[in-house]
Amino acid sequence: MGRKMEWAAREKHMGGIPRKIVFLAVGSVAKAVTSLLNTSSIHNADTLIRLVRSRPPGIPLLTVSNHMSTLDDPLLWGFKGFPSLDAKLARWVLAAEDICFKNFLLTYFFRLGKCIPITRGAGIYQEHMNEALECLNNGAWLHTFPEGKVSQEDAPIRRLKWGTASLIVRAHVTPIVLPIVHCGFEEVMPEKFFLDRRPPFPLCNKNIKIIIGEPLEFDIPRMRQTAISISRDLSCTYRGWPIISPYGLDEAAQRCLYSTISEQIQTAMEGLRNAGKSFLK
């Protein structure tokens, strides 16, 4: 049967009942940890809630955030007023295969939780990136952590991996891209709590801050043409990436385009990080 279990991720698997149970349970825990056991401050929550509940039909939503702990998702969605118990509205999310898909039970659980396995270091065109792309093409909500790994330091947003940018470019309809920056979850679930291990349960009485930005706009047709033009003068080491049809984007053009999009998202996230210091004092 393998470790992928695409069948468990389908909405109609067993009538959708197992998925609903998982989101009721996990969503309740997220609400308790984020809103009851800790103190949360949210900036611009209405924008995220509106896009999750009532964006135009067929328009995908892609949220991106920094990655402060292994529990960022689902705790990030546990703030007051957010529909975290609703499996139908819930996000799909890219999740590390080596952490969330170690065995049958974990794989089944995370698949019910609308998680897509991603193998770190396997590149932006690995098999399950197509599954993430399919989610966007179906008009769904997808969340990614484009920094690619957990970092619990209060430091600038790191250079983003290009996987998120590749999804934006390849989606049939350009998604609404919404940046989010948060802090505090690194204290709720520190990487090195006792004997260099994480605590067995989330910690309490911490301050959580979530800063939600405004949607980013990407004129992908124009950006594609610019990338093609600029890439003609670039020299790079090729990895054998496929040409994106029907636009004729070769690897050099893709690298140029993905880099430009990633830099814009990184800049927006860093702006939120800096603004958050004054928003939520």
Rank of each mutant, 00 (worst) to 15 (best):
W7R: 08
H143P: 07
L94C: 06
D98A: 12
N130V: 13
G213V: 13
I49Y: 00
P199S: 14
L167I: 00
S40I: 14
V64L: 15
N138L: 09
N130C: 07
R239Y: 08
I157V: 15
T267K: 11
G2T: 13
H43Q: 05
Y258W: 07
C115T: 13
L75E: 09
G78T: 09
Q225Y: 02
I17N: 10
T63K: 02
M1A: 10
L62F: 14
E131M: 13
L37S: 01
G121A: 04
W77R: 06
E217I: 13
K4E: 15
I116E: 00
S229I: 02
L203F: 14
L160P: 13
D250R: 11
L51S: 04
I42H: 13
N66I: 00
T63D: 04
F193G: 02
H67D: 08
I17Y: 14
K80R: 14
A95Y: 12
R55I: 03
A227W: 01
I168D: 10
N130A: 12
K12Q: 11
V177H: 04
T267W: 02
A32T: 15
T39P: 00
S54M: 06
D219N: 14
E251R: 00
Y125K: 05
L36I: 15
L89R: 15
F110P: 06
E187D: 13
R222G: 02
G184Q: 04
V150G: 02
L61A: 12
P56N: 05
G123Y: 09
W141K: 02
R197D: 09
K4Y: 12
N205G: 09
N138W: 01
A8I: 05
E217S: 10
E217R: 05
L280G: 05
P246R: 02
I118Q: 05
S231G: 12
E127C: 08
L106E: 15
G248D: 03
E270D: 11
D250M: 03
S41M: 06
A165I: 05
D46A: 13
H182N: 11
M129W: 00
T267S: 10
A122T: 01
E134Q: 09
S65Y: 02
D219E: 15
I261F: 13
W92H: 15
N205T: 15
S278T: 15
